[in-house]
Design a protein around this nucleic acid. Structure first.
Lengths: 252, 252
DNA sequence: GCTGTTAGTGTCACGCCCACCTGAAGTTGG
DNA sequence: CCAACTTCAGGTGGGCGTGACACTAACAGC
């Protein structure tokens, strides 16, 4: 039990246009028919530049050590805000990585969380010298090799998000309180990496009961105004792909 | 980081008839039409009686401490065999529980694994004074309150197994190498708690590609002999509900 | 007012899953 | 040896969800 340290790390994702951290509304959304424009919405995640060995100067997931009196999810929230200033709208435990040689300096077991953050909130965070938004699907090209096994962790988090977004209503946490169905569809398209049929997406989204229409409509666009929708929480209990005690998926 | 200890626990399940640990073949299987006979197959899990405080004399999940040089999954296997003598045919990380007051003696973070074991092997293990098989769906009635938060953990493991057995081919790990489709269906019925149509189960099981027919047939039964099937491993990669690096789901 | 663009609705076809039915192939009991 | 029984194995029709696509609605810009 000696020489064993417990850390938390977080893969936190936001939907940002292209490659620069500006608001989501500034982006021209991807055309529904196919190829992705240069300014399409893409999943981004903040990385932190390491200042100390091991892996000094390399980019890593935000994280830190667990203190004795806080929950694991609280440690994830705290270290995330300390290193990036972000407060997630969704937080879920992903996996615990504990291979003996993950870190060259000793045994480190990392409880990894996946988090989502709304895009405008993400854009408000100033990107300093040591924090950087990187597109999730091209990490190696933009920031090189990540520290530790963090590239593997990101791959797993993206795989889980892709599989989960098709059966659980979590994509809404990447948007604001009110959103159009087109925006929600763009989120799914960015996560899944393929275009979706607007009519069919509308049907399944409404029929699933995960969103409800509001009185408001979106104005100012050069087309028929879109109705704004609101996320509807699972009605207490095991809805939404969680066990009863995890309807808010952050226990433990 | 001081005063924080890392443990592993395992929810290991086997399919035993009724309430006594005898071989699976000795059981008269549940009728396909509805109500469960007294000797139907039920999910059981081994519990270990605690000999020390806290929770002395109470029943708990098998587990132990992580040593500095072993993987988390290895620690789960090792502590499971040390306390129960069982070697699982399937092992998968379930969740990491780390609430500050889980243990009254200090902060303990437990990486919990779910495991499956074949029934005849389970029956071979002698049940001593301090190990006991208990039916998974009636723990409170048979062994009373479990130690720590282990009842909650078992509930979560069962919920995950139920949801996962419908899309991943894992029920086979509760049977031997060769099995009839009726036996595999009985496993699904025991996990899901409801009867399944034999004809439809056959079609979906064969069509999914998770089992393949062999030349052998089962003899000795008072009816037409059933063909024996073999589990077919997912063909390398992301089949079976796992990410690429987790096609054998025990990394970390 | 015309046009372009996107929101939203309706319709049809295909495929999957489920309930049910029919025949086949063994064993048991007289 | 023969009848009865039980389960395997395969087939069929209907319901439902999803994908593809056509059509109408509403607003901005010129």
């Amino acid at each position: 039990m000696a020489d064993l340290e417990l850390a938390v790390s977080t893969v936190i994702l936001a939907l940002l246009p292209g490659s620069c951290p500006t608001a989501v509304n500034a982006a021209s959304p991807a055309g529904p028919t196919g190829e992705r424009p240069a300014d399409a919405l893409r999943l981004h995640l903040p990385l932190v530049r390491r200042t100390r060995e091991p892996f000094a100067e390399r980019w890593a997931l935000p994280g830190g050590w667990v203190t004795p009196d806080e929950r694991l999810s609280s440690a994830a929230r705290r270290t995330l805000e300390e290193t990036t200033g972000l407060r997630p709208s969704y937080l879920e435990q992903l996996y615990t990585f504990g291979a003996p040689r993950r870190s060259p300096t000793g045994r480190v077991v990392s409880v990894v969380y996946t988090a989502l953050v709304r895009a405008p909130e993400a854009a408000d965070v100033e990107v300093g010298e040591n924090v950087r938004w990187a597109p999730a699907d091209a990490l190696a090209e933009t920031v090189g090799d990540l520290a530790f096994d963090h590239a593997e962790i990101v791959d797993y988090a993206l795989w889980r998000l892709r599989t989960k977004v098709s059966y659980a209503a979590i994509a809404q946490h990447l948007l604001g309180e009110l959103f159009t169905l087109a925006e929600l569809r763009h989120v799914h398209e960015a996560v899944l990496g393929k275009p979706l049929d607007p009519a069919n997406f509308r049907r399944t989204a409404v029929a699933s009961g995960s969103v409800e229409a509001t009185e408001h409509v979106q104005t100012g666009a050069a087309h028929r105004p879109a109705r704004l929708y609101r996320a509807v929480l699972p009605p207490g209990g095991a809805a939404g792909g969680y066990p009863p005690w995890q309807s808010r998926p952050e226990l433990g």
